[in-house]
Amino acid sequence: MSEPTVLTILLNFRTPDLTLKSAEAALAAMEGMAGEIVIVDNDSGDGSFARLTAEAAGRGWTRNDRLRVVASDRNGGFGAGMNFGMRQGLSDGRTPDFYYLLNSDAFPEAGTIRILRDFLAATPSAGMAGSYVHGTDGTPHHTAFRFPSVAGEFEGAVRTGLFTRLLRNAVVALPIPEGATRVDWTAGASLMLRSEMIRQIGGFDETFFLYYEETDLCLRASRAGWATWYVPESRIAHLGSASTGMKAWRRTPGYWFDSRRYYFTKNHGRAYAAAATLARVSGQMLWGLRRRLQNKPQADPDHFLRDLIVHAFGAPPPRAATVSPVSATLVEDSK
Score class of each variant (00 low, 15 high):
S2V: 15
V6N: 08
I9G: 04
L10Y: 04
P16Y: 14
D17H: 11
K21Q: 15
E24G: 06
M30N: 05
D43A: 14
G45M: 05
D46F: 08
A54T: 10
R68I: 05
V70G: 02
S72L: 03
G77R: 00
M82Y: 13
N83M: 12
Q88V: 09
P96T: 02
L101A: 04
E109P: 00
R114L: 12
I115E: 06
I115Y: 05
L116W: 01
L116Q: 07
L116T: 01
F119T: 02
T123M: 06
S125K: 12
M128T: 12
V133E: 13
D137E: 08
A144T: 01
A151F: 01
E153R: 11
E153T: 02
V158Y: 11
G161C: 05
R165H: 11
L166P: 07
P175W: 02
I176S: 02
P177I: 02
P177K: 01
G179D: 09
A180K: 02
V183S: 03
D184G: 14
D184L: 03
W185I: 01
W185H: 12
A189M: 08
S190T: 00
R194P: 00
R199L: 04
R199Y: 00
Y212W: 08
R220T: 13
R220A: 03
R223T: 05
A224G: 03
G225S: 01
A227G: 10
Y230G: 04
V231Y: 11
A237R: 15
H238T: 08
L239F: 13
T244S: 06
K247M: 13
W249E: 09
R250S: 09
R251A: 14
T252I: 07
Y255P: 15
F257Q: 04
D258N: 12
S259M: 09
R260K: 13
F264L: 02
T265D: 14
H268Y: 07
G269L: 06
S282D: 04
M285H: 10
L293N: 11
P297K: 15
Q298R: 14
D300C: 09
D302I: 03
L305N: 07
D307S: 07
V310T: 07
A312R: 02
P316C: 02
P316E: 05
S324V: 03
P325W: 07
A328Q: 13
T329K: 11
